[in-house]
Every structure is written in structure tokens, then in C-alpha cells.
């Protein structure tokens, strides 16, 4: 099967670079699966897992605050934070999840509420991805 080059880049440096058969992600408008030869596309991503399929195996990367740029021969995911499943610090994610939950229950003003919600999403996403490996 034809492969497509994928790179996941964050401000702290590249996280992943390889050739894969298929990239599937969750964009704001819904699930997206990308194969080689896709038309150029830009889409913002949800805080979610990126799944990279290669030779029957699937790798998972937790992504937050990112978007996807597709060219016929290359997919670039630019994210503010991204970790491969094996690099996720599970204890830290759990702590972040508890912190966010506490903040959500204490009901402060709107901005803090939204931020806590996003933090909770990120923590849950990391934990999910860490469990998938």
C-alpha cells in the first residue's frame, strides 16, 4: 500500500516523523481519515488522539490545540502540545484531571470555567491515549 509522510511538530520540537499508510484524526467538523494522494486540506483538530496506521500496527499520539495540513505527499500536524502514547506521564495527567475536576465543581467565573474544561479534556485525552498503547 502507498504510504504518506507524516510529521507532528510542536513548539518544543518535532515529536513524530515517519511514513504511514493512513492517518486518522478527529477534526472540529468530524472524523478524518487521510491516505496518500489526498487533496490539500487544512483543518483544526479537536483535543484528541491521532491514529497512525502502518503495516497492521497503529500508533497513537495525543494532540491538543492543533491543526492538520495535508498535501498530496505529506501530512503535517502542528500542535501546541503532542505526546506519543509511550511518552505520556500518566501520573501527571491524573493529577491534572483531578485538579480540573475540582475547579469545575467550585464554579468560579466563566473564563476559569472554560479553562478548567479544556484542561480536563486534555488530561482525559492523555489518559485515553496512554491506555491505548
Amino acid at each position: 500500500m502507498k504510504t504518506i509522510k507524516v510529521s507532528v511538530v510542536t513548539p518544543d520540537g518535532p515529536v513524530y516523523e515517519a511514513d504511514v499508510e493512513m492517518v486518522s484524526t478527529k477534526a472540529k467538523s468530524g472524523e478524518l481519515g487521510i491516505l496518500s494522494g489526498h487533496i490539500p486540506l487544512v483543518a483544526p483538530l479537536e483535543i484528541s488522539a491521532v491514529r497512525l496506521k502502518q503495516g497492521g500496527k497503529t500508533e497513537y499520539i495525543a494532540v491538543s490545540g492543533g491543526f492538520l495540513e495535508v498535501r498530496p505527499d505529506k501530512v503535517t500536524i502542528l500542535a501546541q502540545a503532542a505526546e506519543r502514547a509511550e511518552d505520556i506521564d500518566v501520573d501527571r495527567a491524573k493529577a491534572a484531571k483531578e485538579r480540573a475536576e475540582r475547579r469545575l465543581q467550585s464554579k468560579e467565573d466563566d473564563i476559569d470555567f472554560r479553562r478548567a474544561e479544556l484542561a480536563l479534556k486534555r488530561a482525559i485525552n492523555r489518559l485515553n491515549v496512554a491506555n491505548m498503547k
Binding site: S29, P40, L41, V42, A43, P44
Partner: peptide, 19 residues
């Protein structure tokens, strides 16, 4: 490069420019 936008150009700029 001319891109397809998913969902739309405006919404992508909303996400992209602050970033």
C-alpha cells in the same frame, strides 16, 4: 497552495491566527 478548508476559511483563521 490552494487548500480545501474544513469547515471554512474563517473558522480556520479563528483558530490559526491566535495560535
Amino acid at each position: 497552495t490552494t487548500y480545501e478548508f474544513e469547515p471554512s476559511q474563517e473558522e480556520i483563521l479563528d483558530v490559526l491566527l491566535p495560535q
